[in-house]
Design a protein around this nucleic acid. Sequence first.
DNA 1: TTGCTGACCGACG
DNA 2: CCGTCGGCCAGCA
Length: 113
Amino acid sequence: MKYNQKTENFFADVYEVTRLIPRGRVTSYGAIVNYLGTKGGARMVGWAMNNCHREVPEVPAHRVVNRDGLLTGKHHFGTPEMMQQLLESEGIKVIEDKVQDFQKLFWNPIDEL
DNA sequence: TTGCTGACCGACG
DNA sequence: CCGTCGGCCAGCA
């Protein structure tokens, strides 16, 4: 599969930022988009994540949630429970598909990078 | 080319 | 609180 240079660059940036998320922390699609300069649109981040499973090394997509801290993409993992399981294994509490203390655990690439 | 969809977000009523 | 719409861009029929 080949993508445009634009798309490849976008993908690379998204994956790079996602991999930089510290263990036990989370971020949002909007934050990544904002960090990249809203290039490509917010929905493209999710679209990129849909392809991340074939990327190497593994992209911690489970650390990326929507702006409310909801695990909107959990159905795109092997099983719907996997995303929550991975987060809890890192010490993140998840209740009803929602990250607890989201504001506290939120990792903003703009602020950190 | 058109129209619909999508792991989003913000604004409106 | 909930539904709807517009904007963003790529993929597909």
